[in-house]
Design a binder for these strands. Structure first.
Length: 303
DNA sequence: AAACACTTCAACCGCCGCTAG
DNA sequence: GCTAGCGGCGGTTGAAGTGTT
């Protein structure tokens, strides 16, 4: 980390002897550029500058703020961390459901997905997808882009999320989703069961909503991303993005959101003791038994 | 207690599209 | 029409924290 914090050249490979005047000047400028983790002082510099001058051209902003950072770096730091409305903390069940649904529809269009999750950044969603969803795909030993995994999400994972959200709301409505309810997977042609699975060519193909159950869709349309959370500066932030009707109001209790998720002092960052907001059980979506059952189910279809 | 394994996420990189000159 | 500069985006990396052996 310390090596990172020191000033380094962006063109470390260039041989100074071969540079002309302007290149030397550029080299000199690059020499001053800082990379790696931001310091508190830099954060303050950037926040103060934006508070006084607003956002603008990032390269000029970096210079104006007296930061030895690239404009890109400033932009990233601001958008992903310093912006007052950035939500931190665990992704809620509703957000998880939304991410799954939107990813089914758009694939890895993280920024587009993030637009529908107020306060969440594309980087955060991308990280969640990689660390959580892909992990479970790995557990099920299938490609995250395969139709197999997409159908698992659609027919098992998402209904389960809906159930949990309903349970959380104290609703009496239940959605029955069992392994038996899992349709012969994926478009499962009536071909006698002999099929081979290959990952989709295009991860964003999917069709999404129309393949979802009614209860899922109503849940999604009912989803109101109105939450209160605490941003990285400890400020209380209200987010309201009414997507459908209904009055879902989940008030986040931890200083870092639903539950502390590694941003507080002494919090658990790695490992699996984060209370697993990711669908629930201690290890994640599936228990060992469920994984086994799913695998058996897939095997029975010759997958 | 130490070494190793695993997880998370901030930050960087490279590419692409847009736009002003 | 060309080009340089810039912002935005998705993919990737690696430091650091935590769990496990």
């Amino acid at each position: 980390m310390d090596g990172f914090s020191s000033s380094i050249s962006a063109n470390s490979g260039t041989i100074s002897g071969t540079l002309n005047q302007s290149e030397l000047m550029e080299e000199e400028t690059n020499m001053e550029l800082r990379r790696g983790p931001w310091t508190v002082e830099e954060d303050l510099q950037l926040m103060n500058y934006i508070a006084n001058h607003g956002e603008g051209r990032w390269n000029l902003l970096a210079q104006g703020a007296g930061l030895k950072r690239t404009g890109k770096s400033c932009r990233l730091r601001w958008l992903n961390y310093l912006r007052p409305d950035v939500r931190r903390g665990n992704i809620t069940l509703e957000e998880q459901l939304k991410i799954l649904e939107l990813h089914t529809r758009w694939g890895n269009r993280w920024s587009k997905i993030a637009q529908h999750l107020p306060g969440r950044t594309d980087n955060e969603i991308k990280n969640y997808w990689r660390t959580r969803v892909q992990k479970h795909a790995k557990q099920l030993r299938c490609d995250v882009n395969s139709k197999l995994f997409k159908d698992t999400m659609r027919y098992i994972w998402m209904p389960r999320l809906v159930e949990r959200i309903q349970a959380q709301r104290g609703s009496t409505t239940t959605t029955t989703t069992t392994l038996e309810a899992l349709p012969p997977l994926c478009g499962a042609a009536d071909d006698g069961g002999n099929r081979s699975y290959t990952p989709d060519e295009n991860s964003s193909t999917a069709a999404s909503s129309d393949s979802m159950g009614t209860s899922q869709m109503s849940m999604l349309s009912d989803f109101t991303a109105e939450t209160s959370s605490t941003n990285s500066h400890g400020m209380q932030v209200q987010h309201s993005s009414q997507i459908g009707h209904g009055g879902y109001q989940q008030r986040l209790t931890s200083p870092y959101g639903y539950a502390d998720h590694g941003h507080g002092l002494g919090s658990n960052q790695g490992g699996q003791l984060e209370g697993d907001m990711w669908l629930g059980s201690s290890e994640g979506v599936w228990s060992d038994e469920e994984i086994w059952l799913l695998q058996q189910h897939y095997l029975s279809y010759g997958l």
